[in-house]
């Protein structure tokens, strides 16, 4: 055995897994070859130095972090120890879930709706009587509110906001009586607040075909001094095409003390007649 072959095998002699009796021919060569023996000595010293290296110990941080990570993983897994499904099965599962889940949800919803309709008890006679009483009571309350509103409308000496509430209440009446319309016309003609007069005029719009309303508008038109209310009154008579308002419009259009916009509006209304 030559030196090169022996030197190739020297590390095997230092391998702790190698049998002590192995490579007898190599050991025999070493006894006769100082160079190879020196080679073995240096390798042995290196391996011995490696084996005597002090073991390193991690800091407590590693253990702390590991158990924190393990706890988090267990929590994420829901603490379930069930076997994890194989990838093929897990790949198919979402497809079934995707198809079946909405269908199952709809089916359950339909069943619940049908069952609810079937099991809802018929209203009892007592319930029907209670509902009728409630409806009657509600009507009484509404009527009371309307009466209060009318009362407020008639109290022209009261606060403007209360008069305004009265006008708004009257405006909600679907079929106001002549009395209510009279009150609204009176508010339009005499209420000191321009806001109240404007709201009263708005409340009268739906009833422009009523004689009492037309008479009230014609009476209010020459007396009104507020330009905003004047413009609304002119628009009203122009929309109603009430030619009876022409003389009043003529005077407004010629009165130089009247607001220019009001005069122009009066002229445009006259042109429509």
């Amino acid at each position: 055995m030559n030196c090169q072959r022996v030197r190739d095998l020297l590390p095997e002699l230092l391998d702790p897994r190698a049998e002590a009796a192995a490579h007898g021919d190599v050991r025999a060569h070493l006894t006769a070859c100082p160079e190879c023996a020196r080679e073995l000595a240096t390798l042995t010293a290196t391996a011995a130095a490696l084996d005597t290296m002090a073991p390193s110990h991690p800091s407590p941080r590693l253990r702390t972090n590991f158990y924190a990570m393990l706890a988090a993983e267990k929590q994420a897994a829901g603490g379930a120890f069930a076997a994890h499904p194989p990838p093929a099965r897990s790949a198919r599962a979402p497809l079934w879930r995707t198809l079946l889940t909405p269908l199952a949800g709809c089916a359950l919803l339909a069943i619940a709706f049908y069952a609810g309709r079937q099991t809802t008890p018929a209203p009892l006679a007592a319930d029907l009587q209670t509902r009728a009483e409630l409806k009657k009571l509600q009507e009484q309350v509404n009527k009371m509110g309307t009466l209060v509103g009318y009362s407020l409308l008639q109290q022209q000496q009261g606060p403007a906001n209360e008069r305004l509430r009265g006008v708004l209440t009257a405006a909600r009446a679907e079929a106001p009586s002549d009395k209510i319309l009279d009150d609204l016309v009176s508010a339009l003609a005499f209420d000191p607040s321009a806001n109240v007069r404007l709201r009263a005029l708005e409340a009268l719009y739906p009833h422009a075909d009523r004689d009492v309303v037309r008479a009230g508008i014609l009476a209010a038109l020459p007396r009104e001094q507020n330009p905003l209310v004047q413009l609304e009154l002119i628009d009203f008579v122009a929309a109603a095409e009430d030619s009876a308002a022409a003389p009043a419009l003529q005077r407004i259009s010629l009165d130089e003390s009247t607001n220019r916009s009001v005069r122009d509006a009066a002229q445009r209304a006259l042109a429509r007649f």
Binding site: F66, L70, K74, F81, A83, H84
Partner: peptide, 9 residues
Amino acid sequence: RDGELDALG
């Protein structure tokens, strides 16, 4: 592997 995560400790 079968889900007994405590065994990793």
